[in-house]
Design a protein around this nucleic acid. Structure first.
Length: 422
RNA sequence: GGAGACGUCGCAUAGUCCGGUCGAGUGCACCACCCUGCUAAGGUGGAGUCCCCUUAUUGGGGACCGAGGGUUCAAAUCCCUCCGUCUCCGCCA
């Protein structure tokens, strides 16, 4: 959630951000009014409670013969306190709801608008050219006996797959390569729970507009996470962190991810581009708010290094405000060229959530003078199953074989070529 | 799954039986100062988190004893529910 003090003192900043996101500025006015009401109700309650506490001490010390009269008085007070407390509680809840309806304040420079209003920051690498008709990743995957969608559907339904043989090895290779990249840059690896409690899911901001994207286990009141970001953000919930000297605590989360893809009927139905279950290595950073933007550039840099290592053509886009999700203040997507689609598709995403997530989750550090302040959190993809699509299609040859990029070979036992088996 | 024990301010603990004198004692760790001369001890003081009001700082007030309810004028303390930890037994690997 945003800083209530910012809301109170600079509502125009909040409004501008909401407008850029395509939200109504009235969300801000509503929150301001709720804040006023809440503080008035709180003051009312606290004044009465102070009176009650003082009176209570009198009762305790009073001699027996006076006690009865004092207790009678106290009873009346107690009624009023109870009412005031209930009113304050309601006002608090209303304010909380109004505040949560407001998205993170966007970083200066983020393009306004919706999904199609992104800005291309850079385009890297030549678009691969083929002197034959390129096969799509599924056709290649099937020739390599690496991807089995039919059996995935038989066992689990649409949008489930088996990665088999070299397909399974390829995924592990990419993941391990990403893990080494993370380790080399000081990340601590974490294999995370993929089932989390409601308050953690709530805290990371995933239960807002896109709640129907998330699997929920009704019987146990747990959610299946769509990214290890959720568990990684919850990892330090309600803690006051001791940040290391460079100010950043970096984790690399390895987990399976689950997504319902509720609004995606008919989209990307072929192959493993959009499936309900995949694996991902996710970077997650807790850092000082003033370092967040620089850290964001670093995360993007590491993602780009992965693209280079895998010899993929890609572009980087600055996602528009309306497409950020509530927690992010800025988001860069790295999109790789997919030859058979003739377009760039998202392979990674990195978000700067500034203090928004941390405030909700109660993750703080001690600033100068010992004051606690919310930290900034950032996250970014370092590898996922989907990358297999770009790798197969980009490095395919006319005979259906696939060249393994040099950097990936050590993770496949030195294998240089994936050879079709059918 | 059965039986039992427990959850207190960073850590360790006291307090809970007999409700008010407990937002809470003690030890360790921590911070400042003093003392001292040696790889440490001793002394004094200060320290929690969140929120509200007020203030230039100072200050006042409220909440928080795993979480949520209840009883009561008053709950760390009594009652209920839930969560978690530990021990033993059973079961499955």
């Amino acid at each position: 959630m945003i800083d209530p003090v910012l809301l109170r003192e600079n509502p125009d900043v909040v409004k501008a951000s909401q407008i850029a996101r395509g939200e109504s500025p009235e969300t801000v006015d509503r929150a301001l009014a709720a804040d006023q009401a809440r503080r008035a109700a709180l003051t009312e309650f606290e004044t009465l409670r102070a009176e009650q506490n003082a009176h209570s001490k009198l009762v305790a010390k009073a001699p027996k013969e006076e006690k009865q009269a004092l207790v009678a008085q106290a009873k009346q007070l107690a009624e009023r306190v109870k009412a005031a407390q209930a009113a304050a509680g309601e006002a608090e809840a209303e304010f909380d709801e109004a505040l949560r309806a407001i998205g993170n304040i966007i970083v200066d420079g983020v393009p306004a608008g919706g999904e199609d209003d992104f800005v291309v920051l850079k385009t890297v690498g030549d678009i691969p050219a083929f002197d034959f008709e390129p096969r799509d990743h599924l056709e290649l995957g099937e020739k390599l006996d690496a991807i089995d969608m039919a059996r995935g559907a038989k066992v689990s339904g649409a949008r489930f797959d088996f990665l088999k043989g070299i397909g399974a090895r390829l995924e592990l290779a990419i993941m391990n390569m990403a893990l080494d990249k993370a380790l080399g840059n000081g990340f601590t690896p974490l294999i995370t729970p993929t089932l989390v409690k409601p308050e953690i899911m709530q805290g990371t901001g995933f239960l807002g507009a896109h709640a129907d994207e998330i699997y929920r286990l009704e019987a146990d009141d747990l959610y299946l996470t769509g990214t290890s970001e959720v568990a990684l953000a919850g990892y330090h919930a309600d803690e006051i962190l001791e940040l290391p000297d460079d100010g950043a605590l970096r984790y690399a989360g390895w987990s399976t991810c689950y997504r319902r893809e509720a609004g995606s009927a008919g989209k990307d139905t072929r192959g493993i581009i959009r499936v309900h279950q995949f694996n991902k290595l996710e970077m997650f950073v807790y850092t000082l708010p003033e370092n967040a933007e620089a850290e964001h550039e670093r995360l993007l840099g590491w993602q780009e290094e992965m693209m280079h290592a895998l010899e993929l053509s890609y572009r980087v886009i600055d996602t528009a405000a309306g497409d950020l999700g509530s927690s992010a203040a800025r988001k860069y997507d790295v999109e790789a060229w997919i030859p058979t689609q003739g377009t760039y598709r998202e392979l990674t995403s990195t978000s700067n959530c500034t203090t928004f997530q941390a405030r909700r989750l109660g993750v703080r550090y001690r600033a100068e003078g010992g004051k606690t302040q919310p930290v900034a959190t950032l996250n970014g993809t370092l590898a996922t199953t989907r990358w297999i699509v770009a790798i197969l299609e980009t490095h395919q040859r006319s005979d259906g074989s696939v060249r393994v990029p040099d950097a990936l070979r050590p993770y496949l036992g030195g294998l240089e070529t994936l050879t079709p088996v059918r």
